[in-house]
Structures are given as C-alpha cells and as structure tokens.
Amino acid sequence: MPFIEESDLLALHKDIDKAQIINERLLDQIKFKNKELKRSKIQRNIFAGITALFLVGILAITSFTAGYTSSNKIDDPNLVVASLDSLKIVESRINNLKRQNEELSLVREFYLAKNFLEKQKIYSVQIQSFVDNNVTLASEALTNTLFVKTNPYYSYSLGTFETLEEAQEFRKQLVSMGFNDAFVASYQDGKRLQIEDPF
C-alpha cells in the first residue's frame, strides 16, 4: 500500500486550494464578461433596429418629398439640408456600431489568448503576501494580476510574461518603485512551478 508524507499531503491541499481560487476568479471574470457581451449584443440589436427604421423613414420621406417637389415644382433647399443631416446621424450610428463590434472582437481575442496562456508556462512578479484577504484595492477587472491562496497566505502577483527576461525587467521596475521584496515566479495551468532567479 502506497504511503504519502504529511508534508506532501499538505502541499497537495495547497495546490488544490490555489487551483480552486484561480478557477473561481476566472469563472467570475467570464461571468462578468458574458454579461458585458450580452448587454453589448442587446444594444447592438436595438441600434440596428432603430437604424433600419430610421433609414426606412428617411427613404419614405425622401420619396414623398421628391414626388411632391416634382409635381408642384417647389425648390426648397431646406428639405435637402434636413436629409443630409439625417444621413449624418445614420452614418454616426453605423460608425458607433462598427466600433462596438471591434470591441467585442477584442474581448473574444482576449479570452482565446488567456486560454492559450493557461496552457503555457508564464512568469509573474509576486509583490506581497497577506494573512487575510484584505486587498480592497484589487478589482475583479484586473486581468493581469494573479491572486493565489497558499494556506494561510494570500499572494498577489503582477504581470503575465512569456519570458523570464521580461518578468525580471518588470521586477527591477517594481523594486525601483519600492517593492523591495518582489520576486519572479513561474506558473503553468494555474499552479506555481518555482521561484525564479531575480537577475
């Protein structure tokens, strides 16, 4: 029958706790982004519907006024100016919808990149550990931050880098800002692999 050391068992429990915390944070971030995506999609659909109705109305008014003008031979320059202003409004709305589409594409690309990074070895700079989870300054929207629970500590790291050199350079910048205890650690699949050489 296999035997497991108590320290190994404790380390396994720590790894499980870390993975659970990371998974919970990722799920919260995904829920938050999904709500944003749904809201943006609804807004986009509403704007598209309003724009379509507006264009139909403009076409109806234009065809009515064109028929009225040609039959009565009235040359009113204000009718043309009003139509051009309406077209500018429609063009502005279309540009706004294009911008929102680009933002949604960037969010999608972010999640694809995040999924890829979780499979790769990454580096981050740990700046602090606390006994209590008292980081009210951290927001769920911080996507370039790692919060890892290592019993009984909560560790906070900044940055996700593909190379050790990038992380070491970022650590130097943090040290120059006063984070003297900052160090570089490597992670893969949400687990810390090791503490890296700071230089």
Results as ranks from 00 to 15, higher is better:
residue 58 I to N: 01
residue 53 L to P: 00
residue 140 E to G: 05
residue 126 Q to S: 11
residue 175 V to S: 02
residue 167 A to L: 05
residue 12 L to Y: 04
residue 14 K to H: 01
residue 179 F to N: 14
residue 17 D to Y: 12
residue 77 P to Q: 07
residue 17 D to K: 12
residue 36 E to N: 07
residue 175 V to L: 02
residue 86 S to Q: 14
residue 190 G to Q: 14
residue 94 I to E: 15
residue 160 T to E: 11
residue 169 E to R: 11
residue 191 K to L: 15
residue 114 K to V: 10
residue 135 V to E: 05
residue 75 D to V: 11
residue 110 F to K: 02
residue 139 S to E: 03
residue 147 F to D: 00
residue 159 G to R: 02
residue 30 I to N: 00
residue 89 I to F: 14
residue 30 I to L: 10
residue 55 L to D: 03
residue 51 T to V: 02
residue 116 F to T: 03
residue 34 N to F: 09
residue 76 D to N: 11
residue 56 V to P: 01
residue 142 L to E: 01
residue 87 L to N: 09
residue 62 T to W: 15
residue 192 R to P: 10
residue 176 S to G: 08
residue 14 K to V: 07
residue 173 Q to R: 13
residue 194 Q to D: 06
residue 192 R to Q: 14
residue 159 G to L: 01
residue 91 E to W: 13
residue 146 L to M: 07
residue 41 K to S: 05
residue 25 R to K: 06
residue 143 T to E: 00
residue 70 S to T: 15
residue 102 E to Q: 12
residue 25 R to H: 02
residue 97 L to R: 05
residue 14 K to T: 04
residue 77 P to V: 06
residue 99 R to A: 15
residue 116 F to W: 05
residue 127 I to C: 07
residue 95 N to M: 14
residue 128 Q to G: 15
residue 180 N to L: 12
residue 95 N to K: 15
residue 69 T to L: 12
residue 4 I to C: 06
residue 8 D to K: 10
residue 129 S to I: 13
residue 1 M to A: 13
residue 80 V to E: 04
residue 45 N to E: 10
residue 142 L to C: 01
residue 17 D to H: 14
residue 90 V to A: 12
residue 199 F to G: 12
residue 141 A to F: 00
residue 75 D to R: 07
residue 199 F to P: 01
residue 28 D to T: 05
residue 168 Q to P: 09
residue 94 I to P: 11
residue 63 S to C: 09
residue 143 T to Q: 01
residue 1 M to D: 12
residue 49 G to T: 08
residue 72 N to E: 08
residue 104 L to A: 12
residue 98 K to V: 14
residue 21 I to M: 03
residue 127 I to Y: 00
residue 188 Q to L: 09
residue 82 A to N: 10
residue 51 T to N: 02
residue 85 D to R: 06
residue 75 D to A: 07
residue 39 R to Y: 08
residue 145 T to G: 09
residue 1 M to I: 08
residue 29 Q to D: 03
residue 29 Q to C: 04
residue 106 L to Y: 05
residue 26 L to C: 02
residue 150 T to V: 04
residue 194 Q to I: 11
residue 101 N to Y: 15
